[in-house]
């Protein structure tokens, strides 16, 4: 008891950082990665019929676990709502946040989070029923708007309507499903959230052809992984796992051919460095030489993750759009592996 009390006082005195030994050491000692995900978001995080987690963000959790621990199944998922996610991360109850989280100034600087890049570029849009005859978001004067609380969309909406001097009535909801019920029941005229979310929601309607997504995209929503302030080694790992997945697509490495390409050094020195057949990038991160091979083998490259979870062949049906590689006119771009 006394020891606990002293420890508590000590922890408070040191500024109450929960994990002081470094997250990487903690994760290795624990033998599992605690990954904070959405408690349910179509295409990004959900459970399948065996209770296994699946989705775009979940695949990144698996890739991280594969890179750090060599096994994509060694993940403990920690579902969080929009309001609880940062508290859970900052209290040390989770190691990394892969949960469609928008990178903003205040979150980065004031909430003491460390954003590690962007794994999905999104933007906020509006969806209305066709029979309202609305052609543009500027026609929405006096509309009631379904919106999730605790998100950047809430703030963007207030900004946008203030700038355009139009009035609206917010209908706050806790999650996507609640908004979906509300707009179907006519309790709000408009549903606003990230365009990916709108498309995913519309795909679940019985009459998707009767709903339009308005042309205005009113915000930038760069979604990406988040770690705690002050653990630079761990932040590097998360950032470069994300980059490795992206580089794999640029370099034509897939889930299927990664083992063959990693078997021996090839002609492309960047591939060799990424897959650990040349140099020791993994060692610099404090990881195994085959960190990137393990990650890619677990979930595939960026394009594969995208198409498997949210691409045009899935019910969510999203185009690559901004998330195409920079060589294809998109924004996805990784710093070089050298």
């Amino acid at each position: 008891m006394k020891r606990i009390l002293l420890g508590a006082i000590g922890a408070l005195a040191m500024g109450a950082t929960a994990a002081s030994a470094g997250t990487l050491a903690d994760v290795k000692a624990r033998g599992s990665l605690v990954c904070i995900v959405n408690s349910g978001f179509v295409g990004f995080a959900s459970t399948d019929k065996d209770g296994k987690w699946q989705g775009y963000d979940v695949d990144y959790c698996k890739a991280t676990a594969a890179a750090v621990l060599g096994d994509p199944s060694k993940v403990k998922y920690k579902p969080a709502t929009g309001k609880t996610r940062f508290t859970i991360l900052n209290s040390g109850e989770g190691d990394v946040l892969w949960r469609n989280t928008t990178w903003t100034f205040v979150r980065d600087v004031d909430v003491k989070l460390a954003f590690q890049g962007v794994n999905y570029y999104d933007g906020q849009g509006f969806m209305v029923n066709k029979k309202l005859g609305v052609k543009s978001a500027k026609d929405l004067d006096g509309a009631s708007v379904c919106i999730q609380t605790g998100t950047t969309t809430e703030l963007n909406l207030a900004d946008y309507f203030r700038v355009n001097k139009i009035k609206y009535e917010p209908v706050p909801t806790e999650n996507n499903e609640e908004s979906r019920r509300n707009i179907l029941a006519g309790r709000c005229d408009v549903y606003t959230t990230d365009a990916s979310g709108l498309a995913a929601t519309r795909a679940t309607f019985k009459d998707p052809e009767n709903w339009v997504i308005l042309p205005e995209i009113i915000s930038k929503e760069p979604l990406g992984p988040v770690t705690r302030h002050g653990d630079d080694n761990w932040s590097d790992i998360i950032r470069w796992v994300k980059n490795a997945i992206l580089a794999a697509e640029e370099l034509g490495i897939t889930q299927a051919n990664v083992e063959a390409m990693a078997a021996k050094a090839g002609n492309n020195p960047e591939i060799n460095r990424l897959l650990g057949t040349e140099g020791d990038l993994g060692g610099m991160l404090g990881l195994d030489k085959r960190w990137a091979v393990n990650a890619i083998k677990a979930v595939g490259n960026f394009g594969e993750i995208f198409e498997r979870n949210i691409g045009t062949k899935t019910p969510v049906g999203l185009e690559r759009g901004l998330n195409a590689l920079w060589t294809d006119g998109g924004l996805q771009y990784t710093p070089p592996f050298r």
Binding site: N38, S39, G40, F41, V42, G43, F44, A45, S46, T47, D48, G51, W53, Q54, G55, K78, P79, A80, T81, T84, I88, E93, N175, N176, E177, R180, R181, A200, A203, T204, F205, N309, I310, T314, P315, V316
Partner: peptide, 26 residues
């Protein structure tokens, strides 16, 4: 308990609802 990330029956229901194959059957 869903608030703190434990998945009771309601939580399992919600995360299942996010499965793209079934979404919308709340």
């Amino acid at each position: 308990v869903i608030i703190i990330g434990l998945f009771d029956m309601l939580g399992m229901g919600r995360s299942s609802l996010a499965d793209a194959k079934w979404a919308g059957l709340s």
